[in-house]
Design a protein around this nucleic acid. Sequence first.
RNA 1: GGGGUGGUAGCGAAGUUGGUUAUCGCGCUGGCCUGUCACGCCGGAGAUCGCGGGUUCAAGUCCCGUCCACCUCGCCA
Length: 622
Amino acid sequence: MKRTHSCGALRGADVGKEVVLFGWVQYTRDFGGFRFVDIRDRDGLTQVVFHPDVDAAAYAVANQMRSEFVIGVRGIVRDRGMQFSKKKGEMVSAHNPALATGEIEVLAHEAVVFNRSETPPFEIEDDTKTGEDKRLAYRYLDLRRPKLQHVLRTRSKMNQTARNFLYSQGFLELETPVLVKYTPGGARNFLVPSRIHAGKFYALAESPQLFKQLYMVAGFDKYFQITRCFRDEDLRIDRQPEFTQVDIEMSFVTQEDIFAIVEGLLFAVWEVSFGTSLRDRYPDGHFPRMRFDESMEKYGNDKPDLRFGMQHTDLTRLVVEHGGGGVPMLAEIADAYRAGEDRFEVPRRIVKAMVVPATSTLSRAEVDKLEEFCKGMGAKGLARARLADDGTWTQSPLAKAATPEFRAAVNAATGAKAGDLLLFQFGDTAMVHTVMANLRLHLGRKLGFIPEYGTKDDWRFLWVVDPPLFEYDEKENRWAAAHHAFTRPHDDCVQYLESDPGRVLCHRYDLVLNGFEIAGGSVRLHDPEVQAKVFRSLGISDDEARAKFGFLLDALRYGAPPHGGIAVGWDRVVMLFSGAESIRDVVAYPKTQKATDLMTDAPNAVAPAQLAELHVRVVEES
RNA sequence: GGGGUGGUAGCGAAGUUGGUUAUCGCGCUGGCCUGUCACGCCGGAGAUCGCGGGUUCAAGUCCCGUCCACCUCGCCA
């Protein structure tokens, strides 16, 4: 037998043809005298009829068939036609409109079982309720489900589209090493011991960052790569320890040129994923932009989900003006600002609020649960106030202390109306941002403004631009590079590099989609003088810089072109475009949240001899 | 490392204030059935209730510890 069609191919027009189908048994339905077998492959499902009057041998084979057996069938395509339904007592159409092949069936003249299957640990069907851990342990069975087949096929098409698009724009697909030198800072690296060099290690590349810049120095002008990156950090719903980036770097470009390429790329990929044009939503072909500081102020993070409102209001200045408004804990913050211990340019402590609309009634118990939710993220509590008709606050520990002037000012600043619920956070800036950002998302889901996962067919792309070059490391008590030390500062900020590092903005950009960062990059710093200033701000001496990044600094002195680039988090794009619940649903063989592989049981211990060869000794922790 | 949710036949779930044969659906299996398509009908097998301690006359249920999965903070330039 030689296969003639896939299991999703046959239609009414094929009636009368002799065909051969290969595939897996999806369901069997036995009627005593004859038997239906649904045969499945990656293309679809076809109903096969086995009847002893047509071929007794084939019918006998069919009686052996069970779920997931691998079979071959030769037979004639025929229209399902009208059939007498015993249940309904009349002639009815036997067509199945739910099935692409539902007009026809194959009347079997010959059948073969290529391989039997043990009863699978779970059924191969799309609306599976089987737990993810079970499915990961039998991933090869899970991947048989049409849903996952579809995701991986779409992913394949998206890869092809990305390649075609970037080739069409003059890019070269160039490779970079995975085994690289360890460089400190940034994400934790996986380390690979060297057998040849006792006591020395490679790192798995967390990104091709340095090598793609060296390609620019080497004159390749436009580089891209669909590449695997490795980071030994804790996992999340959108993070895997190994993940795929569409990595891009270009010479002689501005930020605008890079945006245009990524927009073009995503418009093209969107089209093959959805069969529609993103121009329906973004007619000029560009995504909107927001400054980093605006994003932080209104959304508490640098990846705002724009599908709903409930923006934050920064009340810090207002609190300072009102001397705390009568509330002791706020007065403490106000005093610190007035005494100059805190300053607005680089605030260490802030006060923020958000409004939960009156239409979204939250019970007292629910708000108490929200408070626990906040405490889990480091908040001391969750101050709240419900607005009465006259603007006074009820259900609030602040109600008595707050002065009427302060209360009115807060109501005005936040735009809160009668019945609305005000939620407050104050204290350490990073904590307040984290808590408020997650609170907003949590409420957004709880109140039904956004779904638990997926998009609800609402797509909000956004470039977040002009972030600070440095952020202050409270633990180390010094300035650190927010992205990396080779990001180009804004020209009008260079003057502050050494005097006031916190004010320096830079040419870094992230592309955000519905609250997920799907791409990030920067225009690189290629001016050695400015580079030296950046290192000085970071407290990195010339010697240190040379030890860490010597090869790159050398390269930049041999005629480095101005250049910049970006990396697209490909798994996240596939996840969002395919409506998957997590990144694991778009990675064929993913790791668990503890970075294990439930199917292969990686990572595992190895034999002492193997360790000895690598000059590695394992130390038992006490 | 912190906060949270869950773990009961192969799979998904129920299990009351602790009470003696641990329930249901799917799957599996035997039988019947000539138009189903998640076929239907009748019967059957299948569980050390994640694991280890403890309290109790008695623990799936209460307590302590621990493992696994998931969400999240920290972390992820």
